[in-house]
């Protein structure tokens, strides 16, 4: 191959071919007939046209008038309102790292969210959130909590009695009981608070597991009592 291309004859012939292929003379007919004269061909386009081409003509200004202004106001108002409506669904955001001022408004929105109940007659049944089950649950829980509260009260009095009885016990155990008592009360309070909050907010799995703990609590305190009795 190399041998051939190096030969002067072949080179000359290649050049001639290239010249013939490129020139206007390549056409077998008179292209003037098409209206394409020499030098009147527009420049060849290479590649796609630019993303932001220069515009030769400036755009005409927008219509302005009372109608347009009013529609503009309507549009902006509409957008604002739609964003506040419960129909605007916010993605479940992860807990913000820093508490922000705007969160106050977010809470309002979430409340609105609760308020929207679509007409289920016009929607497929499968879209209905399974609320009934969840609504039924908390009531049952409430009872259990109450019972456990009574239990704890009974427990505390019992503990007090035991404390009085077992005055001779070493101080260490006394401290412990006190600590436990404090813990119990605290826990109880927290539980009550959290429960109220959950009642308003949406139920989810998190709460369920929490209430299970609440039930455990009663049993746990029983254990405590037993342990106490052994001292």
């Amino acid at each position: 191959m190399e041998h051939f291309t190096n030969s002067p004859i072949v080179q000359r012939r290649l050049a001639a071919m290239a010249g013939k292929g490129r020139g206007v003379a390549a056409f077998t007919f008179n292209i003037e007939a098409l209206g394409i004269g020499r030098g009147s061909m527009p420049e060849a386009r290479v590649g796609p046209s630019p993303l932001f081409p220069n515009t030769d003509f400036k755009p005409v200004p927008l219509k302005a008038g009372e109608d347009e202004d009013y529609m503009l106001a309507l549009k902006q108002e509409m957008r604002g309102t739609m964003q506040q409506l419960p129909h605007n669904i916010k993605p479940q955001s992860n807990k913000a790292e820093v508490e922000r001022y705007t969160e106050r408004y977010l809470k309002q929105r979430q409340l609105d969210d609760e308020n929207w109940t679509p007409d289920w007659n016009l929607l497929p049944k499968e879209l209905m959130p399974q609320k009934k089950k969840l609504r039924a649950k908390p009531e049952a829980k409430k009872k259990t909590v109450k019972i456990s509260r009574k239990d704890t009260e009974a427990l505390l009095t019992k503990l007090d009695e035991l404390e009085k009885k077992g005055d001779g016990n070493p101080e260490k155990s006394d401290d412990e009981t006190e600590k436990k008592k404090g813990n119990d009360e605290e826990e109880e309070e927290i539980e009550a608070e959290e429960y109220d909050e959950e009642d308003i907010e949406e139920e989810n799995d998190y709460i369920d597991s929490y209430f299970d703990n609440g039930e455990d609590f009663g049993a746990g305190s029983d254990d405590n009592m037993d342990a106490e009795a052994t001292y």
Partner: peptide, 21 residues
């Protein structure tokens, strides 16, 4: 997307007539 949110979104779309089922 979670079931809950998809359900809600579909409700919104149907409510606004943007979706038929």
């Amino acid at each position: 997307i979670s079931l809950d949110l998809v359900k809600k979104s579909l409700c919104v779309l149907v409510q606004h007539g943007a979706c038929v089922f």
